[in-house]
């Protein structure tokens, strides 16, 4: 899975939770949850969605590292490498 495919998968997962998200409006360097208004249930569902789609395990201890969209992409890329 290359960078673009990974990004597409993450965006698709995000859109399943927040259908109104416009990809172009997302800043990769800003906190994702405040940009998209994800509450804790949304966030959990987002991570569950990533887990199901990409077969990666995301321990709760790692949540704190997943702040921006860029963080999420880097984290997943490393996990999938």
């Amino acid at each position: 899975m290359d960078e673009n495919e990974l990004r597409a998968a993450v965006i698709a997962t995000l859109k399943a939770i927040a259908p109104e998200v416009a990809e172009g409006d997302l800043r990769a360097d800003r906190p994702l949850r405040s940009q998209v208004d994800l509450d804790s249930m949304d966030w959990l569902n987002f991570l569950i969605g990533l887990h199901e789609r990409l077969q990666v395990d995301i321990p709760e201890a790692d949540y704190a590292r997943l702040v921006t969209l860029g963080d999420v992409l880097d984290y997943l890329a490393r996990k999938l490498a």
Binding site: S40, M41, L44, L47, I48, H51, D57, I58, P59, E60, A61
Partner: peptide, 10 residues
Amino acid sequence: AGRPIAARLL
């Protein structure tokens, strides 16, 4: 920590 992600509590 001991739970799969889908079973985690909030």
